[in-house]
């Protein structure tokens, strides 16, 4: 089965002119974990995920492992400060510029392998030669296509 056969063609996206706050609001409203960021011509610039936003909110030096523990720091206060600074920032400041891009004719096995190798997102963006976004495939979409299991499928 090819990526284009199961990809979601109706998807929400954001453009580089939006702020992080606007994008996050839309993600909350539609219960999305990911928004593709598109240029005016529809080409993919990156993706915004809850994870990529969190990465900008949690300071780098906490992630590097130099602090054995941060249990003594005021947790919400520090994150709120960075969140407040980002809310009006352009969406590009929290964009992961290296989303997982796949071609429409790629097999699902190859998309699944690419998702695991990439490791940061649960979604692959299906794009054409010019990197124009055609659809989105999630890990869940792939698993959904494995039902029913092989034994039942053979018996049917």
């Amino acid at each position: 089965m090819q990526a284009q056969q199961i990809m979601t063609r109706k998807f929400l996206a954001t453009t580089e002119t939006e702020t992080m706050g606007m994008a996050l609001e839309r993600m909350h409203e539609h219960r999305l974990h990911m928004l593709p960021v598109l240029a005016e011509d529809g080409t993919v610039l990156g993706v915004v995920t809850m994870f990529s936003i969190l990465m900008r909110i949690v300071p780098n030096y906490i992630v590097t492992g130099d602090l054995e523990s941060v249990s003594y720091a005021p947790d919400l206060g520090l994150m709120r400060r960075h969140y407040g600074e980002l809310i009006e920032a352009p969406i590009t400041s929290v964009t992961d510029p290296e989303p997982l891009l796949v071609k429409p004719d790629e097999s699902l096995l190859s998309v699944a392998a690419a998702l695991l190798a990439h490791g940061r997102h649960e979604h692959a963006l299906v794009v054409d030669e010019q990197h124009v976004l055609l659809g989105v495939i999630s890990a869940g979409d792939i698993l959904a296509n494995l039902n029913p299991p092989p034994a039942e499928a053979a018996g049917a």
């Binding site: 130099d66 602090l67 400060r81």
Partner: peptide
């Protein structure tokens, strides 16, 4: 130094 960064950040 890491604690310093936490404090200056706050």
């Amino acid at each position: 130094a890491p604690v310093t960064l936490l404090i200056t950040d706050a």
